[in-house]
Design a protein around this nucleic acid. Structure first.
Lengths: 160, 160
DNA sequence: TTTTTTGCAAAACCTTTGCAGTTGG
DNA sequence: CCAACTGCAAAGGTTTTGCAAAAAA
């Protein structure tokens, strides 16, 4: 049994495909949009709008963050991008691959690990069995205490 | 194996206990704090700061929301209260019982169900087994598609 | 009386909206 | 050329901070 069928199972392997998908729906390839896609294709780590805009890194001229948000929203609508909340702070965006990137976050040290989809599937199996829900851990990750932190001081959780 | 030891396993059954816990740490029982605790003891549903302040219901005179936030933060620090993010929008606060209230949220219809701790424990078992993490679904709930919504239209998830 | 807590004003932070001007195709 | 897109300004929603006045113990 598959985990969850997706409307638009875009498996984007490179920019060209993404651009083709965009054009097919009447979207253009502006400078800001190229920057957004380039940034997202360049990393596994989900990025905040500000990181994408380039306000922090300050390489070339930063894009207007407003425009970045509008692009992210449009791309999310198209199923090209999705966002996740890793804790408090800004939402983080990433390419929506058909095997969504899943994250496991340690609430103590803040570490973010990419989860193996097969392992996530096992968790989803139990959720389905117990709750009847098709769980997704894409908008909110699995949060807990990582083995290192648990070894340092068992118990005493503290939310971020 | 227990799920997760807590620092201060306060099992508050009534206001008096909460007040005693507060006084033991030099805190006073002000009108706003009483309102916060009364509101939280009166419901299972996690409440936003605004709901607690009374801005929405508009019964008596609403408390200053600033003060409500300060109280919630203090109570959270003491382990009496915790907050959860059910989606976008304001955080929602509730009493931190030793069996934390757990929620399962449908991302399609927005329904929020309280989860049986034993069922959550099974999910935690798999997370432990697969990832080595002591998962908590207290800050972020388990999100997915509920059986009703899945029956209406399989696939095609849409984040809120 | 002393320390905590409040209320108000203001700001911080993240995100969205309106609009006139620019640009990609 | 014309719809899509940008940049700027402004606002919206949530949460935090500073400080003098009020209240709890």
């Amino acid at each position: 049994m598959t985990i969850s069928a997706r409307t638009a199972p875009l498996e984007l392997t490179d920019m060209d495909e993404a651009v083709a998908a965009l054009r097919a729906r009447g979207h253009r390839l502006s400078a800001v949009r190229r920057r957004v896609l380039t940034a997202l294709f360049a990393t596994d780590r989900p990025l905040s709008a500000e990181e994408i805009a380039g306000g922090a890194g300050g390489e070339v001229s930063a894009s207007d963050i407003t425009s970045v948000y509008r692009n992210l929203e449009a791309l999310e609508q198209l199923g090209v991008v999705s966002h996740v909340h890793l804790g408090h702070g800004p939402g983080r965006y990433r390419l929506a691959r058909d095997h969504h990137p899943y994250y496991v976050v340690c609430e103590r040290c803040g570490s973010v690990e990419t989860a193996n989809p097969d392992d996530v599937a096992k968790v989803q199996d139990v959720v389905r069995e117990r709750f009847g829900y098709e769980a997704r851990f894409t908008h909110f990750p699995i949060v807990g205490t990582c083995p290192r932190c648990a070894a340092l001081a068992p118990g005493g959780e503290r939310e971020r």
